[in-house]
Design a protein around this nucleic acid. Sequence first.
DNA 1: CACTGTCAAGAAGCC
DNA 2: GGCTTCTTGACAGTG
Length: 304
Amino acid sequence: MKIGYPCVNESLDCTSSATFRLASYSAERLELAVAGNLLCLQRILAYNVVQGLRFFRISSGIVPFGSHPINTYPWQTRFAAEFRAIGSYVQAQGIRISFHPDQFVVLNSLNPDIVQRSIAELEYQGSMLDLMGLDTTAKLQIHVGGLYGDRESAIERFIATYRELPEMVRRRLVIENDDRLFSLRDCLRVHEAVGIPILFDNFHHECLNHGEPMAEALRLAAATWHPERDGVMMMDYSSQQLGERKGKHTTTLEESLFREFLTHLRGLDVDIMLEIKDKEASARRAISVLRELQLVAAEVVVIS
DNA sequence: CACTGTCAAGAAGCC
DNA sequence: GGCTTCTTGACAGTG
């Protein structure tokens, strides 16, 4: 079991998603931003290893305007060595990597231009995993997309688009159950049609489900991951911020709820991404809990 | 230097 | 039809 947090480290004084305005785009600024972002990413990964955190979601903003037509800078070749070095470190330390393209990636959109831009974004993020030399256990996680008032055709459009995706995207793509539109059950239907793994989100499942108990839901999702091709199931973990709108993520790990959740695993191996506001602070607390329960190694061996 | 409106991109819910 | 939220930081212009 690996524990991680998304994109941002609040302990270090650097960012891996420095950007600038489209209006002020230049090749120089792009090169400068990517160089700084990759340097910071290396620092974050090293920090994580020391803390025993071996799952990380890399920010989509690592290359500003990564899939935008304005960006014609050959960043893939200019930074090939840096990506390769990061990938080697990731493999040597047994780190799991994911990306989560944001809400603008909608594969089942009714607008073909949006679908094309979405695919371009997935190709951009997938190409970084290829540059790092990572296998297909490194994933790109997205949601099914929009509902547009018709669940059936929305799901059918996703399936049709998925089948046409470039191989380098398709082999890494996974879908996540969301909290309002597409439930675990909907995702399972997509899986049955095309074999795509389901990244399970416990909190979304609490918000939107069809009565499946947590332990059963976890097993249904886990069965969609092909062990050799996809690796251990990835999942997002969070809980409700009390007194806020339903679906609002908690600001810090609620340890008792986390312990209760772990009882539902019943021996199932998962890599858990904590979608919690205070990032690595909660992730480190989760590590403490898991060490106490002997679900992760008690001590970290740093290989240099 | 501090403040703040705004930023590439989508969709849904509410009024 | 317009505004807000998801989710969030930080860019960049202003005072």
